[in-house]
């Protein structure tokens, strides 16, 4: 029986939210593959064993738990090599992940090691008897590409774009049979295992904040962001900005919302003085609601927003802050 191998992520034993998307996509993909393919999952390294039950609950018939003394933490080369050896040992028909930073990197490692094609960031995948067809994203999602994937006799290697699939619980759990796997890792692969961590922000980050208040060139200066800071902190949110703002040196790049910055998904995104270039839009488009505040009624951000105020952000933002304080009795 053929198998689809889905590569799951964890961070030192902490289940990644992207795994729920990965398993949702994998259940659909395996149903679309011919001859009743079986859904296998792999979890790698220290802390993986404790998560095997979650993978089974998400629909995996078999959960491979790969371990080796080297796999103390994430390492792209060692993880990639582990997946290659497992894929070969199980003769899988396809290997899939979600296109997070790690997901795309591990699949690229698998592809390089097997010298096989790899299609990253698919929105939809149609498996076929020979080649597969898919629609994938270009330009961070503002353009779509229909593509075909021909892997000869080798497994198909694909990732789904992060947030391309809405995670849903499995209708029925998989058998979740746990199988331990011991890869043979060359000592040299230790060269790209994480050595240390430097945690700078505890608590809410831009990518997890329920509210993001962003400013663009229209804010006018680094000092102008003080108004946005006050509003964001009242709402338990974070301040973001456009690429123009980081290029001007007004804010640190860690605050940048966009294709080359952070992808956000808040309950509401308040975009002030931002025109809404493609680069910015693709970082903001997963927001549940968008409020644009801009003097330019024709701005792209205004056209794409759910709500807009056509006025000077320097007057509107303090007015929102004052109104919140009034209602909270502050």
């Amino acid at each position: 029986m053929s198998a689809l191998l889905v590569v799951l992520e964890h961070d030192r034993g902490k289940w990644s939210e992207a795994n729920d998307e990965a398993l949702t996509a994998a259940r659909q993909l395996v149903a679309d593959m011919a001859d009743g393919a079986e859904l296998h999952a792999v979890l790698i390294g220290d802390g993986a064993l404790d998560l095997a039950g979650q993978a089974g609950a998400g629909g995996a018939a078999v959960v491979h738990v790969a371990n080796d003394a080297m796999l103390t933490d994430f390492g792209p080369e060692a993880c990639g090599e582990t997946v290659v050896q497992l894929a070969v040992a199980e003769s899988v028909a396809a290997v899939m992940a979600v296109g997070t930073s790690r997901g795309n990197e591990v699949l690229a490692q698998v592809a390089a090691r097997m010298d096989l094609p790899f299609v990253a960031n698919c929105m939809t995948i149609a498996p076929g008897a020979g080649s597969w067809s898919m629609t994938r994203v270009q330009w961070g999602g503002s353009l779509l590409e229909d593509a075909t994937l021909d892997s000869g006799d080798g497994p198909k290697l694909v990732t789904y774009g992060h947030h391309a699939v809405v995670a849903a619980p499995a209708a029925a759990p998989g058998a979740g049979e746990v199988r331990e796997f011991a890869p043979t890792l060359d000592a040299s692969l230790a060269r790209t295992i994480v050595k240390d961590r430097d945690v700078q922000t505890a608590g809410v980050t831009l990518s997890t904040a329920p509210v993001v208040v962003s400013g663009g060139r229209g804010v006018g200066s680094a000092e102008g962001f003080a108004q946005l800071e006050e509003l964001a902190s009242l709402l338990g949110g974070r301040v973001g900005c456009s690429r123009a703002v980081t290029n001007l040196g007004w804010r640190n790049h860690t605050d940048q919302v966009g294709q080359t910055g952070t992808r956000i998904a808040p309950e509401i995104y308040i975009a002030t003085g931002i025109s809404g270039a493609i680069q910015h839009w693709v970082g903001a488009m997963a927001s549940k609601r968008i409020l644009a505040i801009n003097t330019d009624a024709e701005a792209n951000m205004v056209a794409k927003a759910d709500y807009a105020v056509i006025a000077d952000l320097h007057k509107v933002v303090p007015a929102i802050t004052a109104e919140i304080k009034r209602r909270k009795g502050l």
Binding site: L116, P117, F118, V119, S133, Q138, G141, S142, L143, L144, E145, D146, A147, T148, L149, D150, S151, G152, L291, A292, V302, A303, K304, A305, D306, Y307, A308, V309, I310, A311
Partner: peptide, 22 residues
């Protein structure tokens, strides 16, 4: 083994921005 078939733009989402004020 990866072949581009066609590029296309995602469907335009209907713009129905609610203007809350000026």
């Amino acid at each position: 083994g990866q072949t581009l078939v066609k590029l296309h733009r995602p469907p335009e989402q209907a713009s129905n921005t609610e203007i809350l004020g000026t």
